[in-house]
């Protein structure tokens, strides 16, 4: 037995034997306070932007930027809002089920980094708190969100080593 390596069938049998305990363990919130605070803050941040954007889009709130509604970059905000929503859903699900959370963080960081660079290249001239507060806050707060995701990936404790 010493020095003998297990094949896929044997590893599968062992994993199956522990599947019940794995299921129970996956439901335990076995994470640090830092992680929980970061996940909660990220969820609140994305949700707040999505709620404001939705109210804004369906004219439930007074538009802060008068000319924004008819301009092309409203389509950009719309696309980003959709992407952020799906990222938030997938990250929360993978954290809850303890499956591939670090890979999800990696994907989220890449997507956010790409969006941040795109915003910097295309919309630097539009940044103005007086004229476009919502858009400016959205563009400037993205790097902070990026840092939060990286931090979450680092402090995440994958007790079952799924990643």
């Amino acid at each position: 037995m010493v020095g003998r390596k297990l094949d896929d069938t044997e590893i599968g049998a062992i994993l199956e034997a522990f599947s019940e305990s794995r299921e129970a363990k996956a439901r335990v919130t076995n994470q640090t306070t830092t992680f929980r605070i970061l996940l909660a803050c990220s969820s609140v941040y994305v949700s707040a932007f999505l709620i404001i954007y939705t109210f804004y889009e369906i004219n439930l709130v007074q538009p802060l930027e008068a000319g924004l509604i008819n301009e092309d970059f409203l389509t950009v905000l719309d696309g980003r809002a959709n992407i952020m929503f799906w990222l938030l859903v997938l990250m929360n699900m993978s954290a809850y089920f303890n499956i591939a959370f670090k890979i999800m963080c990696l994907i989220a960081v890449i997507v956010m980094l790409n969006a941040t660079v795109d915003n910097l290249v295309l919309f630097t001239g539009l940044v103005s708190f007086e004229e476009r507060p919502y858009l400016t806050l959205f563009i400037l707060s993205r790097p902070l969100f990026l840092v939060a995701i990286i931090w979450m990936g680092i402090v995440y404790n994958s007790a079952l080593a799924d990643d």
């Binding site: 970059f73 389509t75 950009v76 696309g79 990696l106 994907i107 790409n114």
Partner: peptide, 20 residues
């Protein structure tokens, strides 16, 4: 990471930045 970036760029070009 590179695959995620390539897909993000593709989605950006076709669904987000298509009017810009």
């Amino acid at each position: 990471a590179l695959t995620a970036w390539a897909i993000a760029v593709y989605i950006d070009d076709h669904l987000v930045l298509y009017r810009i």
